[in-house]
Design a protein around this nucleic acid. Sequence first.
RNA 1: GUGGGAUUAGCUCAGUUGGUUAGAGCGCCAGAUUGUGGCUCUGGAGGUCGUGGGUUCGAUUCCCAUAUCUCACCCCA
Length: 418
Amino acid sequence: MKISAPKGTRDILPAEITRWQWVERAFAETCANYGYQEIRVPTFEYTELFERGVGDTTDVVTKEMYTFTDKGGRSLTLRPEGTAGVVRAYIENGMASLPSPVRLFYDITAFRYENVQKGRYREFHQFGAEAFGAEGPAVDAELIHLLQQYFARLGLKQTSLHINSIGCPVCRASYNELLRDYLRPHLGTLCETCNVRFEKNPLRVIDCKVERCQTVTKNAPALLDNLCSDCAEHFAGLQHHLKLLGIEPVIDRGIVRGLDYYTRTVFEFVSEHVGTQGTICGGGRYDGLVESIGGQPTPGIGFALGVERLLMELEAQKLELPQPPLLPLYLAPLPTTRDAAALLCARLRERGIGVATDLIGRSLKAQLKYAAKTASAVIVVGDTEVETGKAKLRNLSDGSETEINLNDLDNLAELLKK
RNA sequence: GUGGGAUUAGCUCAGUUGGUUAGAGCGCCAGAUUGUGGCUCUGGAGGUCGUGGGUUCGAUUCCCAUAUCUCACCCCA
């Protein structure tokens, strides 16, 4: 045991792969119901894409990227999130000429160099969806409804939807000045980080967790109350659509989001179980992103969902998760009938039946023990059975036996499918 | 980047006030009159006690460093 998996990575073993496949499949099917099509984009991109797309002042870009130089001297980066790559693909492949809006979803691994803790890894999985070309709030509501339906399908409860609007560049700029004016007299009270935030992105001061910062910001003007009329109308429209769909959001002025590209609508699905990593899913609108990466001005909105966090939450809620299936049949030969069993096994597999037989010369007793753990039925293939063709199919869960004919494989295959 | 806890068999963990061949349960493999599983009994395989230094006659045990895991801050999914 010399080499272990790198820090922040983990193996997903057969014992848990079934639940992964389950959430992946449910996500793909839910997206399909809403007209979202899957897109697969590269695991690494030119570093510049993330610097421009995610924002070169964000923690994700400045401190957490896996960046390297390849043998051709290019600076490449393992994707820290999915949106930038999808936007790049949208532009590069001329998808703007497709019928609008363009709806896409993805299922990816992403990479961030940061300290590991509960629900957070250096290589992690995200599901996401993006919609391009729709400006009005209806598409915002569509994505939120999609997520709500996905969670319902999985049986997930106790997650609440938090929404906010962080405005457009115009109203955010004027708000930032308003906020700075409010904060300036209190700079001495604010923590060190917040003094940096004051210059860089004063919005973030509001969600600082240091107590003395919170007392300062308690009466600070809220961005939500200082939106320009277009943004305010958009946010009101979103609430109207959500109400129409029967979704009740929590208006949360504290949602700010750490990625620079967000505009207007931002939202999170939050759980109470996962502790401080309670945000299972986060997303928002990014109306300026396509243009800043070099495309035509195009409104866009999307979300990313942390798959590890989703699975943790499903477990925390003690929901019944699918278990790895047992093999339908095990064939137990004796030393004299190994060839006959091997042939029978192959013939059944050719008919699409999941079946296994002994490969290592185990005793009959040991084979039955093995079968009890790995299969749901067993047939002992002995000399008598091979000669007469008559054998017993034993159900390993209740011990019941059924007479079968080893020469009538189609019939046996039918029986096993039940 | 900062701080707390941990690291002994595949897994969950004992243990030694520093002393010969380091233990248990589960799991795995095999056997209990050589054709019938789950229970029981018996036996077996499997460990450089995370790694590297130091103190000591002697270190799994004490000290230092380091790695990894884990939890939290920050940030994010």
